[in-house]
Design a protein around this nucleic acid. Structure first.
Length: 571
RNA sequence: GCCCUGGUAGUCUAACUUGGACAGGACACGGCCCUGCGGAGGCUGUAGUGCGGGUUCAAAUCCCGUCCGGGGCGCCA
């Protein structure tokens, strides 16, 4: 909120569009490099910095009121450094945070426009794995961030509930299911099916006839054979029940579910339209392809020679129907980088078809999640199962908690274990730039030291503990000018930056930026304790520090909330 | 083979869009703080831009080449 004032000040002395940087503490709170003006003004940047600083200072003398939020303006080399009037800034930011509470950091960038975020989109018939965990975490965080930026968010998932993988599970069930059910065997529905799927893979290697059976099963499904459909529905409902348990465990909810089984034939009229518009052309054997070669993208077949449609045909249809029906401002597809080309083709076709909303489609691509010894592939049987992983993390967290608090109740232990275990997992998934491949190292992920979710949660809980010691009293800030220690002013400055971090994180889908901000805030808070006492000091100073910590606590909780992580009061 | 993407200390990573003040942080390793308002902490030391060119007053950042990793190139999803 004060950066904007700096921009205005500079504009008043003829420096348009300055770049604001965060300098080293010794220099000030905001720094502006003058290199960009060197050419235009035909002067050395150092000289420019001195001149602008002089101008600002004389302005400051003329109208001191306008500058009361600034304490110093200095030039240093090619930089102009601004130092805030700390007590004024501290008072304003702390009061703002404590007034807005949960809403601090929100903005109205979205202006209530609607965005759909499609994520997760699992294949039924197999349980979710580590890759889905990253996807779910990203999808949830992006949704939360967009929501905080004033968008109406529709969380959507496209369930891939038909096709070869389901047919195989169905064949496997007929052979080896022995009339068992998830309930009778005490298994989660998706795991129950997952085991059948693996069984099919193993048996099919020995007995190729099974593949033919699966193909027959798929044809029967497509022909809507009654018995086949009944079997499919039974297996599907088991699987969906299983998924719902996983989503519940993660705390993820969807607003809209799409079912491939209801959509897979759609899109024919778009292909006809594409032909009319010359975006698509018929091949010799009757298949139809979108011609993209002139845009350096490989052509893409959108209708088979037998007249049936393909996955991308469905995607074309689904995109159009979403924009037609829901007045969307944007769709964000959270899908792994394997499908980069698919989305490139999809978006290009939509654009060539003349849909103006095509440019509002965004593929949030993320790198593969790997195990230390190679990439995860379900058929290799080295899958890290999502449910197992979440349970493992919670067990580890519980172990840590009970080691520290042996007398804790089982109920409380479960709550904390859940918050900490899932927090660790979620933060681990979100702390990296999405384009980077993520190596899932079980040992590193369970560590509670370093750049982790539990570290941020710990900082929050530690503040809560101080308030508890103070009998829950939350004082007003009376003398913000007492917050003069280096660690205090650093915290205040960090707090002012939070809304800008949220906005930047949202605009660029850079969730890891928010993660790093929270780590920094947590580190700075812990450093603060090292040099400042809170409760055992004079009352006005104590209250000022408590007010500061209260604001930090709110921001930590808000930030973790956006990431989809709980902020427990005790750990 | 072609296309996309990444390469930053022993390991992982930030900054790359918009080139600028000693490349920021974490883990590991070494030293210190050890009856603390929660040590799940703080302070501190060592150590880094794959390689080769180019543009620029200035390059981790932009351009070209090269090497290495990952992904993709189906009338599969």
């Amino acid at each position: 909120m004060f950066k904007q004032k700096v921009v205005e000040l500079l504009a008043a002395v003829g420096f348009q569009h300055p770049l604001l940087e965060k300098p080293d503490l010794q220099f000030g709170d905001v720094a502006v490099p003058c290199f960009s003006l060197a050419k235009e003004w035909k002067k050395a940047p150092q000289q420019i910095a001195i001149e602008i600083t002089e101008k600002l200072r004389s302005k400051q003398q003329a109208e001191p009121k306008q500058f009361k939020w600034l304490s110093e303006i200095n030039s240093a080399g090619a930089y102009i450094n601004f130092k805030y009037n700390q007590s004024l800034v501290a008072n304003e930011v702390i009061t703002t945070i404590r007034t807005q509470k949960k809403k601090y950091g929100y903005n109205q960038e979205g202006n209530n426009k609607t965005v759909m975020v499609e994520f997760s989109s699992p294949n039924t018939g197999k349980p979710m794995h580590l890759g889905h965990v990253r996807n779910n975490c990203l999808g949830r965080a992006v949704s939360n961030l967009l929501s905080a930026s004033g968008y109406r968010v529709l969380r959507a998932s496209l369930m891939n509930d038909r096709g070869a993988h389901m047919a195989k599970a169905m064949v496997a069930y007929q052979h080896w299911g022995e009339r068992k059910t998830p309930a009778s065997s005490g298994k989660k529905g998706d795991h129950f099916l997952g085991e059948l799927y693996v069984k099919f893979k193993q048996e099919a290697e020995k007995n190729p006839i099974l593949e033919e059976e699966a193909a027959t099963m798929l044809r029967a499904w497509e022909a809507e054979d009654k018995k086949t459909i009944a079997l499919w529905k039974k297996l599907l409902s088991w699987c969906v029940n299983g998924f719902n348990q996983t989503y519940k465990e993660m705390g993820i909810k969807f607003d809209v579910l799409y079912w491939e089984s209801k959509l897979w034939k759609q899109g024919a009229e778009l292909v006809d339209l594409g032909l009319q518009k010359g975006v698509m052309e018929k091949l010799e054997d009757g298949a139809i392809t979108a011609t993209l070669e002139q845009y350096s993208i490989p052509d893409k077949v959108v209708r088979r020679s037998d007249g049936t449609s393909l996955y991308i045909t469905q995607d074309l249809y689904v995109a159009k129907s979403r924009f037609d029906e829901r007045n969307l401002d944007r769709i964000v597809y959270v899908v792994a980088c394997e499908q980069d080309l698919h989305f490139k083709q999809l978006f290009k076709i939509l654009e060539l078809m003349g849909f103006t909303w095509a440019k509002k489609c965004y593929h949030l691509s993320y790198g593969m999640v790997a195990l230390p010894d190679g990439v995860m592939k379900s058929r290799e049987g080295r899958v890290v199962d999502a449910d197992d992983l979440m349970k493992e993390m919670q067990d580890l967290a519980k172990k840590e908690v009970s080691r520290r608090y042996p007398d804790i109740s089982e109920e409380e232990l479960t709550l904390r274990g859940r918050a900490i275990g899932l927090g660790a997992l979620t933060f681990f998934m979100l702390r990296l730039d999405p384009v980077k491949e993520l190596m899932y190292d079980p040992k590193a992920s369970i560590s509670f030291e370093g750049e982790t979710g539990p570290y941020v949660q710990y900082s929050h809980a530690r503040i809560c503990s101080i308030f508890e010691k103070h009998e829950g009293k939350i004082p007003k800030i009376k003398k913000p000018e007492l917050l003069t220690h280096q660690t205090e002013t650093a915290l205040v400055t960090l707090l002012t930056e939070y809304p800008a971090i949220v906005l930047a994180s949202t605009k660029q889908y850079d969730i890891h930026t928010l993660c790093h901000y929270l780590l920094q805030l947590a580190t700075e808070t812990n450093a603060f304790y090292g040099s400042c006492q809170v409760l055992n000091v004079e009352a006005n100073l104590r209250d000022a520090r408590l007010a500061l910590l209260d604001a930090v606590r709110i921001v930590l909780k808000n930030g973790l909330g956006l990431l989809g992580i709980e902020a427990p009061q005790r750990m």
